[in-house]
Design a protein around this nucleic acid. Structure first.
Length: 800
RNA sequence: GCGGAAGUGGUGGAAUGGCAGACACGCUAGCUUCAGGAGCUAGUGGGGGCAACCCUAUGAGAGUUCAAGUCUCUCCUUCCGCACCA
């Protein structure tokens, strides 16, 4: 007979809600612990990814609760976003109604999983009480010039009919619908995240408890590269052509320069020259090629000579000026110096077009001296400067600095740092988001919506046709307003903010969800922040995590908080796979958590998901594995019928060992091995028989993992309070000390025997005992023992 | 190309430099049961041996060490991120 999980789970979910036992203690003297998972978009259903994410967090939160911490473990909804609008178009409903319904469904499913949330702090970003503060923050940024409007070429998703941030473009496609992203010239709102680039990079070193992977992804994304801008000049008119390089040590080997086809100087350069027609033809051809084709690695680098020469400022050499597709206008200065001997791309291009090469760095290994004629590929490593004027003989790493300084002094170059990070484009041509609190007046220009008029609410009667752009622009009463300054007629901004704006500070709102003076109450934030443990998917490694770090730094500069980083510890949980592939509708390999809960209960699902793999690795769904977890709980359930008066010392010892292991493992998020050791204890109980104390401890240790199950058994054991109020068992290290120990005996590093000895035995006594061991005789064969190595209480190794 | 992570039984996965494969799934056998997608017990990396045992084995190869899955080097493979980034 299976244990009655359905009844038990429903009973305790109701009981927890009634007793509000997961709500934080206000004004508490206890140590705080803020455990947060990335809040969901309310699609209406939770999937296995959610279950895994929230189960991991729930164990951490419950473990800290039972340890006596004041734990903030909130839940909310990232409720703005496109699916609500799409649903509105499809079902002729309204986004807010649809979203509310989805939130309700989702909450039901979250409840059924038994997560220990403080529901009193629930927030939803689509509520005026929340997005009002988005607008407030936007205005603060606007006042400081951190939110600004700029015309530029931006990413445009034709399917979603909206602009996208660089971070939202994945492999040239829209992150949401995978449609191919186009470039469009538009005037849009940006946030000046680049203002914080140095700090965003620097402070990564503070984040010691973040996964290396995320840190390196952010480092890459910010993309700092230090080098020199070197000024070449055109031979014919002395016009300055700056090139950016990080390899200024190779400048003496620059035998030509290359401009991007879009480079503004190209057209005037070729005017009237015999090459003019051909170059223009080439430029047009490149312009037609999509970016994806152009950067595909197997495409041959194409280029054409402009008929112009430039002067290399370090040696006054004349070098030809080329135009080529492999030079990009977006990066650096849109022009490069080419050093074919020490840059592989330049090498390929030079060989193709028969351009000159000169070695300027020789590797330190004499046998590998290079000659330009025999070069098979560019030498990009370190070495000694040659053919480099006064820098000859220097190691190139030193020459790098010396040359940079020298060029600055001579006025032929400037030390420069380039960054990959661009400002954050936040305008979205959508309805279901926070409207940007700006009014355009023909007389006053761009005018802020006054703070007292916030929130700028979304009109409820916008038409959802799916055609003709944002529904907001079609609502006359919304668009046509009077200017807050001159009271003349004006127009309201109809774009809304990217929803990543909403999630960039929600963790602060949870600290004081009802505060109505500012986005958050400084005093509460001081107590709760930073988040001690943040848990979510790797897909936010850059997007959400970078934006949140940016917002935190902005608030710090506003003196609204006093720390630099919002999330102390970060865990990125692995994906849930089935058949080796990520669960997805299109692959048809989805396992619905709700169906598992119905069949086996939430506790079994939680147990399986924690046991099947460590949190940060991928988890392969296994239908039979889940049955195993269910069997285990039933096995534990049956123990209560056979409790003994008193447990044996042997079992007590195993129990203490388990307490130690489980405590340490949960602390370190090694839930799979914690569960394994609970299973071992259970196996021992089956062999030896447990008393009430041992069984109680097993129940307490299971409680963060399978909370309903543990509550029920805890109650059956005669306890009145929730198991979350129990004392987490402590292990007694004295009991763990064994009087006798088994010593593994090796001969030349191979295990040949084992001896049982007193734990406190001396080395001499041990040696005597070991040498007396009959089993070892054939291995020693009377040979002299050169060395006798002892690892106390573990091992002895005889070296012959 | 650069950066990151990882390669261990049929499977998921364990192993502060010290008995490789904990725990579980699966499989095999036995017991129990009217029955089992239930329960209990035992076995289960490969090779050899009636057996006690022996040999061998953590992607490949070298090295350090009394001792290497673990440390170092070289190489291979897979996954992820960035990428003609100058």
């Amino acid at each position: 007979m299976a244990y009655p999980f359905k009844q038990i789970e429903e009973k305790w979910q109701a009981e927890w809600e009634k007793r509000k036992i997961f709500c934080v203690e206000p004004e508490s003297k206890k140590k705080k612990y803020y455990c947060l998972e990335m809040f969901p978009y309310p699609s209406g259903k939770i999937h296995m990814g959610h279950v895994r994410n929230y189960t991991i967090a729930d164990v951490a939160a419950r473990y800290k609760m039972i340890q006596g911490f004041n734990v903030l473990h909130p839940m909310g909804f990232d409720a703005f976003g496109q699916p609500a609008e799409n649903a509105a178009i499809k079902n002729k409903s309204k986004p807010d109604v649809w979203t509310d319904k989805c939130i309700e469904w989702m909450k039901q499913e979250l409840r059924r999983m038994g997560f220990a949330y403080d529901w009193d702090r629930e927030i939803s970003t689509c509520e005026g009480d929340y997005y009002r503060w988005n607008q407030w923050i936007f205005l603060k940024m606007f006042e400081r010039g951190f939110a600004y409007k700029k015309a530029s070429s931006v990413n445009w998703c034709p399917k979603c009919e909206t602009t996208l941030a660089n971070e939202e473009v994945i492999d040239d496609g829209c992150w949401r619908c995978y449609a191919k992203v186009e470039q469009k010239d538009l005037e849009q709102w940006f946030l000046k995240i680049t203002e914080y680039k140095e700090r965003l990079l620097q402070d990564l070193s503070q984040l010691r408890d973040w996964p290396q992977r995320v840190l390196s992804m952010q480092t890459n994304w910010i993309g700092k590269s230090q080098g020199v801008e070197i000024y070449f000049r055109l031979k014919e008119n002395g016009a300055k052509i700056p090139v950016f390089t990080t390899r200024q040590d190779t400048i003496f080997g620059a035998t030509y320069i290359v401009l991007a086809p879009e480079h503004p100087k190209v057209l005037e350069m070729i005017k009237g020259k015999p090459q003019e027609k051909e170059v223009i033809k080439f430029i047009k051809k490149v312009a037609k090629e999509s970016k994806a084709v152009r950067i595909a690695s197997d495409v041959k680098k194409e280029g054409i000579f402009t008929g112009t020469y430039a002067i290399n400022p370090v040696n006054n050499e004349e070098v030809p000026v080329w135009v080529a597709d492999y030079v990009l206008m977006e990066y650096g200065t849109g022009s490069i110096m080419a050093v074919p001997t020490h840059d592989q791309r330049d090498f390929l291009f030079a060989r193709e077009h028969n351009l000159p090469m000169r070695i300027v760095i020789q590797p330190s290994v004499v046998s590998r001296q290079l000659s330009a004629k025999e070069l098979k590929e560019a030498y990009e490593g370190d070495g000694t400067q040659v053919n480099s004027g006064q820098f000859d003989g220097l190691p190139n790493t030193q020459a790098k600095t010396k040359i940079a300084e020298w060029m600055e002094k001579e006025g032929i170059g400037k030390i420069k740092t380039h960054w990959r990070l661009r400002d954050w484009l936040i305008s979205r041509q959508r309805y279901w988001g926070t409207s940007i609190p700006i009014i355009y007046c023909s007389k006053c220009g761009i005018v802020k919506v006054p703070y007292e008029d916030l929130p700028v609410k979304l009109p409820s009667d916008a038409p959802f046709t799916g055609e003709g752009g944002s529904p907001l622009g079609k609502v006359k009463e919304f668009v046509e307003v009077s200017c807050p300054k001159c009271k003349g007629s004006a127009r309201r901004e109809t774009d809304t903010m990217a929803t990543f704006f909403d999630s960039s500070w929600y963790f602060l709102r949870f600290c004081s969800p009802d505060f109505d003076q500012e986005p958050f109450d400084k005093k509460d934030v001081k107590y709760w922040m930073p988040v001690d443990q943040y848990i979510g998917g790797i897909e936010h490694a850059i997007l959400h995590l970078l934006y949140s770090r940016f917002f935190t730094k902005f608030f710090k500069d506003l003196k609204m908080l006093d720390f630099d980083e919002p999330f102390t510890r970060l865990l990125t949980q692995g994906m849930v796979l089935k058949g080796g592939e990520v669960m997805s509708k299109s692959k048809g390999n989805i396992v619905d958590p709700d169906s598992i809960v119905k069949k086996y209960g939430a506790d079994t699902l939680r147990l399986f998901i924690l046991f099947a793999a460590p949190p940060e690795t991928e988890l392969e769904w296994d239908d039979r594995g889940i049955e195993g977890s269910f069997r285990y709980l039933n096995r534990v359930w049956r123990i209560q019928e056979n409790l003994k008066e008193k447990a044996t010392l042997e079992l007590i010892k195993i129990m203490h060992k388990t307490i130690k292991k489980v405590s340490e493992d949960i602390e370190n998020f090694k839930f799979n091995t914690a569960i394994a050791s609970l299973m071992e204890l259970t196996n021992s109980i089956y062999q030896i028989g447990a008393d009430k104390e041992v069984f109680s401890n097993l129940v307490i240790m299971l409680s963060p993992i399978t909370p309903h199950f543990a509550e029920e058994l805890w109650q059956k054991l005669g306890n009145k309070e929730s198991v979350i109020k129990a004392d987490w068992p402590k292990y007694d290290s004295k009991i763990l000390v064994e009087a006798t120990v088994t010593i593994v005996v090796q001969v030349n590093g191979k295990v040949r025997s084992k001896v049982e000895v007193l734990a406190e035995i001396t080395e001499g006594q041990l040696k005597e005992k070991v040498l007396a061991d009959e089993k070892l005789k054939p291995w020693i064969q009377g040979k002299p023992i050169k060395k006798f190595i002892v690892v106390p209480k573990k091992l002895a190794n005889l070296v012959l």
